[in-house]
Simulated scan of single mutants.
Amino acid sequence: MSVQGRIGHAGGAKIKRALGVQAALEWAFRVEQAQLELPPPKDVTEEGFGFGLEYVLLQRAMLGCKVDGGQHKMGSYTHPDAEVIAATVAGMPDRLGGIRMAIQVAELARAGMTPDWLPGVVPRCVPMETKQNQHGERATTVVVSTERVKTRGKWRTVEVLACPVTWRPHPEQIASARRGYEDWWQAIDWVRDGLIVGGMLREVEVTAAMPKMQPWLARSFPAL
């Protein structure tokens, strides 16, 4: 849960609104609808080159983000603090994912979401295929070998059947989702540090509050 409040300063200075970095990002992109001013690729030297709408939409599609549908405040006022936050996100270093991560952070904030780390999901061993008959759904079996058995005084060849199984969702899917969450966490942690150290926000003060780094490790304990 993001932390919000008001911070008072001695000497009659202006009171700032205190926000955790996730709340600050959502305020900038969701409420103020700030836009990312993305830098040009490093291998492009032509003056005046910038990222077109097609590039941003392509990046959003690769991230699985939904297009906003024209809800931006085109030509209207955007709070200067929101512009500073957006500019900070746009400067995401390559080691943290660069432009791709900047777009992901902005789009998740705009949607008021965090990356889906598949909470509560546990891999289950299930048949790879099933079939339906008069008795209901049954697992599909395959012949894996044959054996000679003696029944009623006669030797017979019988098929040995097995049910191919798999894990769903696969453990790697869960691990990948959680790595994605950790990458996002590292990115907004970098944004938080930059906003705090930069000191360029006029009416918003970013606090040290952060989402849980690995929420899947959190355990609930009974109240005493």
Rank of each mutant, 00 (worst) to 15 (best):
I103P: 00
V44W: 02
K150M: 15
P93G: 02
Q214F: 07
G64A: 03
V143L: 15
R95Y: 14
G50M: 07
Q22W: 14
E47L: 13
K16N: 02
E172W: 09
R6H: 07
G52N: 12
Q33N: 04
R60Y: 00
P40T: 05
P39L: 08
R110P: 09
S76N: 08
M1R: 09
V143P: 11
T88W: 09
E83H: 11
I174V: 13
M101H: 05
V206L: 00
Y55L: 11
E129V: 03
L53T: 07
T88L: 08
A223W: 11
Q71Y: 13
E182G: 02
A109K: 04
L38D: 00
L63D: 01
L63S: 03
F221W: 11
A34S: 07
F51M: 12
E83K: 15
P41I: 10
V3E: 12
T114F: 15
V3Y: 04
Q71T: 15
L108H: 05
G194Y: 08
T207K: 01
L96M: 03
T146D: 15
P115A: 08
D183L: 10
R60P: 00
G97K: 09
G64D: 03
G120Q: 09
T130I: 10
V160H: 01
Q214S: 10
R100V: 15
P215S: 09
E205M: 06
A28H: 05
I7W: 03
G153Y: 06
A175C: 02
R110V: 06
V126G: 12
R192L: 07
G52V: 06
L25F: 06
V191A: 03
A209K: 06
A111C: 03
